[in-house]
């Protein structure tokens, strides 16, 4: 079976491997920034505060204070960069809280409000699928900020035993799907395909765009069951 990008099975595996490696590398850098660089800078920050308290010359004291303020700002930047690269809430609290947290940042960045609705009981999703959905939603929202020319987006999560359906709807400018070649949309479809899900984009000029993301949850549970079996066997 060919995937949405028309790739042959071996190319699909390569594509899956590239996406997975990229995500692992992003996560590694995010962790290294947070746990490594961030912690070292924090040690330097407390050291500077200690020096500042001990120094008596006013000009040196104010210089050290300035340096420690810059250090504090840098630590904050490192933390934010780390969270932007790989949101820790995705693994700790789950997909919906991670999306809600990202949406807050999105609204304060682009001034576009996102109305999120969640219907049904939220279910746990494995990490790779959560990341795939999160990245697809990020790409969709980013495209809306770039092209849709609207102030409000609607996002609906529908949870059932069998599946998770997400609809991202904007009533903006819209576009002619057959007339554009978007690698962003192709990558969204590819990511969902690789998780066993689907991503369908429909749009009409002047009426807006709708993105339907779906993930079968039964497969998820079965996969998890296989993993548990494999782990207990090893």
């Amino acid at each position: 079976m060919r995937n949405p990008m028309g790739l042959l099975p071996e190319k699909q595996e390569i594509s899956s491997y590239i996406i997975q490696s990229q995500e692992e590398e992003i996560k590694r850098i995010a962790l290294e920034l947070h746990e490594g660089v961030g912690q070292s800078l924090y040690s330097m920050f407390t050291g500077l505060q200690f020096i500042e308290a001990g120094v008596e010359q006013p000009h040196l004291k104010s210089y050290i204070k300035e340096m420690s303020q810059i250090m504090e700002k840098t630590i904050q930047e490192i933390r934010l960069l780390s969270v932007e690269l790989h949101p820790p809430t995705l693994t700790t609290l789950g997909l919906l809280p991670a999306i809600k947290s990202y949406v807050k940042l999105y609204t304060s960045t682009f001034g576009i409000e996102v109305d999120i609705k969640s219907i049904g009981e939220e279910r746990s999703i494995n990490e790779s699928s959560s990341i795939a959905i999160f990245r697809v939603c990020q790409e969709a929202l980013s495209n809306i900020a770039k092209y849709a020319d609207i102030s409000i987006v609607k996002m609906t999560f529908i949870w059932s035993e069998q599946s998770l359906q997400i609809n991202i709807q904007d009533y903006g400018r819209g576009f002619e799907i057959n007339e554009i070649q978007s690698f962003g949309i192709a990558a969204m479809k590819e990511r969902m395909f690789l998780t066993g899900g689907d991503c369908v984009v429909s749009s009409k000029i002047g009426e807006g765009t709708s993105i339907e993301i779906s993930l079968p949850l039964k497969v998820e549970e079965e996969q998890r069951g296989v993993n548990i079996d494999q782990n207990s066997a090893s």
Binding site: K73, S108, T109, F110, G111, I112, E113
Partner: peptide, 25 residues
């Protein structure tokens, strides 16, 4: 904090600027 916010504007086509906050740098 270091964040920067748009306070007033003229000729704006939306009120998005009121919600936009950018980080220092």
């Amino acid at each position: 904090g270091p964040d920067v916010r748009w306070h007033c504007a003229a000729g704006n086509i939306t009120d998005k600027y009121k919600r936009i906050t950018v980080r220092y740098g």
